[in-house]
Design a protein around this nucleic acid. Structure first.
Lengths: 316, 316
DNA sequence: ATCGAAATTGCTCATATGAGCAATTAGCTG
DNA sequence: CAGCTAATTGCTCATATGAGCAATTTCGAT
């Protein structure tokens, strides 16, 4: 045994320091510490395996490929994109948005029609897209959301921005997200213009969407479609969030069918059936709804941050 | 140029991900990205050089060998020990203390007589020493410090603890750190017992000491030797801290000769002359006095934390 | 104390990588 | 556009490292 061997971990630390910080070869380290180079090599492997040596890729555009593979395997996703955790929620969102923009830009074949939902997350994606990310894409709004309040994240400006940067055009859904009365929703839905847009959305080549949280910070509350009391009631019924305005519980079941019937836009079955459905999410508030989306097969591609990926993978 | 080359850094990130996270060879990566393996190798070197790939040794007993070498080179130290930054000041102190304990334990030849100062930092070192760290070491107190208040960090218990763990014995200096009157200090200093201890300390084989800050948290204030007003005055005179109770400015000059004359214990010249003088320090509050110590040649070995090392090396 | 199984070690040979060099390419200046 | 310099690239050859295997050592049970 070597002279230094008071403690195995301490030996591993010393070996790792000589190799990674001093740049010495395994042979040189062996000579210094009275060990064979094979033993030194094994100690280094162990240092990496035990996390004593940590090799990290530090860059805003970096990905976490290991987590991506685990997400694909665990949830049967066609593709997963995970970006490294940063020091703030805002930076996490920016990185996720940039990664989603990258995914859209690299999508092959290029979609001729792209259906989009709306919210702050997708607004960030739109901001990250470069001009010319594609050419001639028709961007169709797939759920209601005329902006009642003047806040960022409105559906119409978002779809328009994405379309503009692809030298395409936007097809808007001029309807509120949720109607007060079922009759009104049915009337709007039957209008030839609205029906045409929904039909176009249903036939889109690809879908880009995010999910909403079920609390006061919800875009629906911000935009006046729901009150704080409404979302409290939805939470009581087990809702973990919404997809395309459809409030669902952890198992993906609609928690309030009556409310759902008054909600205008594509249904979740249409996402399930899609060949390309890109789900973009960031932040801990959306962990629950994110889990529901990937478990429920509502997306083919997920773009998210490291903490969300770890949270989804943690569960037995 | 490769198909992916929209951005050089992005290429570097992708290459680094495939190599370090996917475990692919440089040949394999070259084939995937339409690059030569030599180009891949260069990109990886650049990734490490630019900090995009960060290789870190994460362990409480880890050292920062690069910083150690720089400290030795810059300040002419015989030895420097730097431990990685942790998440808290307490943990930093524990790591520095453990490293100092390691240094003492590995010191060759084993000192027959070890002179020690006192304070919270050395108390932590004493706590980190293992029983049997050496055999038969005489631990001599080298500056006054009978505990007036009952607080951890007292000189006598500290020397005793270090001695006990070395199956040795302690030689205490039964005197206050600072006397009220010069006559009293001279009388105590002349006492044969006290003179004998000081003489033994002066002839010690090795010295272990820390430095004190010049503010209200000073051990001298805590122990009642100085008032808060006293240290304010010392600060006004340019003091950055104390070594063995000797308050000095950034250049190592005694700021209050009168106070100094009433201070009992070895002088700084004796540290300067020592063959082995181990200086232990942690925390930002001591950066200034730490700089004075290493610049002034008051130690041969420095044991400190990463942030202190970087601060000392930062200055032109 | 013995025996068997598991763990560890040192080795051979193949693979992976880097240093230094010559050739090529890119960029700048006149 | 030409010429020169700097930067970059691909290569050879040597070095560094890892996989798989046989031998050795360690450990636990009887």
């Amino acid at each position: 045994m070597s002279r230094l061997a008071a403690d195995k971990d301490l030996l591993i630390v010393r070996v790792a320091e000589l190799y990674y910080e001093e740049g010495k070869t395994q042979d040189e380290i062996g000579a210094l510490l009275d060990l064979s180079r094979f033993k030194v090599g094994r100690l280094l492997s162990q240092a990496r395996a035990d996390g004593i040596v940590r090799i990290e890729i530090v860059h805003p555009r970096a990905r976490r490929l290991g987590l991506e593979r685990q997400l694909r395997d665990r949830f049967g996703l066609h593709e997963a994109v995970v970006v490294p955790a940063s020091n703030s929620a805002d930076e996490d969102l920016k990185r996720v948005a940039q990664a989603a923009a990258d995914q859209l830009t690299m999508l092959r074949p290029v979609p001729r029609t792209l259906a989009v939902s709306w919210g702050r997350t997708l607004t960030a994606v739109a901001s990250s897209l470069e001009d010319g990310w594609a050419r001639g894409v028709t961007v169709v709004q797939m759920n209601g959301g005329v902006s009642v309040n003047r806040r960022p994240g409105g559906a119409a400006p978002l779809a328009a921005a994405i379309a503009k940067r692809a030298a395409g055009h936007a097809v808007l859904l001029p309807s509120p997200a949720i109607l007060d009365r079922l009759e009104t929703k049915r009337a709007i839905e039957s209008d030839r213009t609205i029906a045409g847009v929904l039909d176009q959305a249903a036939k889109a080549d690809a879908y880009l969407f995010t999910a909403g949280v079920c609390d006061e910070s919800s875009a629906h509350v911000e935009n006046g479609y729901l009150s704080a009391g409404d979302v409290d009631e939805l939470t009581r019924r087990g809702a973990v969030g919404d997809v395309l305005g459809r409030y669902v519980d952890a198992d993906g079941n609609i928690v309030d069918p009556e409310l759902d019937s008054r909600t205008l836009g594509l249904g979740l079955d249409q996402l399930r059936a899609a060949k390309v459905a890109i789900f973009v999410t960031a932040g801990q508030a959306k962990h629950d709804i994110a889990r529901t989306v990937v478990r429920g097969g509502l997306c083919t591609t997920m773009v998210t941050d490291e903490d969300t990926a770890r949270a989804l993978l943690e569960e037995v």
